[in-house]
């Protein structure tokens, strides 16, 4: 039996007399121990989905169950096995870190004498032990985020729903959260994490889903998706001279290379064609360039990541002078532009 089962889940928000569809029939199944990365741009419907699973919103249609329990029919049972971390949350004023955790431990009906031990445990897990007696509002944003995670862990939930746990954090804090999630993964929890950013998910998610405008465009095993997505992911090659020859070689490697584009080299030659005489130095530059015709090429690589070097090797063996060969950081926007073109779906 899958741990999380979502069938045709749909949500419409009422806006006056009209209704706005935020989620158009989501289907998803996750097994126990899965870490699911839920990726999508702003307004895609990630928060809506997660809130419905957390029993905070009522679906308009469809069904969802966690551990075999329907989220609409038995919200009380769901709440005791699910830990939810919202995208935005506040903390109480005038309360200490341990009191905050004690409050939630008591609210989850943990026996009174076990609470101090559990609080120490979750504090250790989230690296907040030395903040135990500080006031909650004095914590930094990253610490508050970790405190919220600690609170989510207090009742040892089977399933964790984390809505952008790393948003608004600096790189160091992001890495800390990522490490923490890896630990949770090791503890065998089923986790749904939402994010805007794909690369940070790859490391610890075993399944990934990309959602846009309420539709799940792609979902499945992280390796499968990664291959597909990496097909879209670009390699920039900066070449000193003889651009056409490099292009010819690359276009010949049809099994791993797709879509060869000239990026910065094109711009230079265009300016040349327009023939702006006023700009003498630049004209000079262009002149020296035209003989060799160097520039930057962008290719879409679809092969295995470890064999990227073969492309480089082929170029060099053919005498192309390669200045740089690098992968620009893939951001979601980029993936999305491709995904919506139908390259993946």
């Amino acid at each position: 039996m899958p741990m999380i089962e979502i069938k045709h889940l749909r949500k419409e928000y009422r806006e006056g007399s009209k209704s706005k569809v935020a989620l158009k029939g989501l289907d998803l199944e996750l097994e126990k121990g899965d870490i699911f990365g839920f990726i999508g741009p702003n307004g895609a419907g990630k928060t809506t989905t997660i809130k419905m699973l957390a029993t905070l919103l009522i679906p308009t249609a469809g069904a969802a169950s966690i551990d075999g329990i329907d989220v609409v029919k038995h919200p009380e049972q769901i709440r005791s096995i699910v830990g939810y971390m919202p995208d935005f949350f506040g903390v109480y004023d005038d309360i200490k870190v341990w009191e905050y955790l004690d409050f939630f431990a008591a609210a989850y009906r943990l026996p009174r004498d076990k609470r101090p031990g559990i609080i120490d445990e979750v504090l250790a897990l989230t690296d907040l032990t030395e903040k135990k007696d500080s006031y909650v509002e004095s914590l930094s944003r990253g610490m508050k985020q970790r405190l919220c995670l600690a609170k989510t862990l207090v009742h040892d939930p089977k399933v964790m729903l984390l809505d952008e746990p790393a948003s608004g954090l600096d790189p160091r804090a992001r890495i800390e959260i990522r490490e923490l999630l890896k630990e949770l993964q090791a503890m065998g929890k089923t986790i749904i994490v939402s994010s805007h950013i794909l690369p940070e998910m790859e490391e610890f998610c075993n399944k990934i889903g990309i959602i846009e405008q309420g539709e799940l465009i792609v979902a499945g095993d992280v390796n499968t998706i990664a291959r597909q997505v990496r097909g879209q992911h670009n390699i920039d090659i900066s070449i000193v001279e003889d651009l056409p020859r490099a292009m010819a070689i690359l276009e010949g490697m049809t099994d791993v290379v797709r879509e060869v584009k000239i990026t910065s080299g094109v711009r230079g030659s265009r300016r040349d064609e327009q023939g702006t005489q006023a700009d003498a130095p630049s004209q000079l530059l262009q002149k020296t360039d035209t003989s060799g015709r160097g520039g930057v090429l962008q290719i879409g690589y679809v092969g295995e990541p470890d064999f990227e070097y073969l492309v480089l090797q082929a170029l060099i063996q053919n005498g192309v002078k390669v200045k740089a060969f690098y992968t620009p950081e893939t951001d979601l926007e980029d993936v999305f532009l491709r995904v919506t073109k139908g390259h993946v779906a």
Partner: peptide
Amino acid sequence: EQQTMDLLTLTRL
């Protein structure tokens, strides 16, 4: 207002 209601209602209280 301080966005703590959701956390509170999701407990077993």
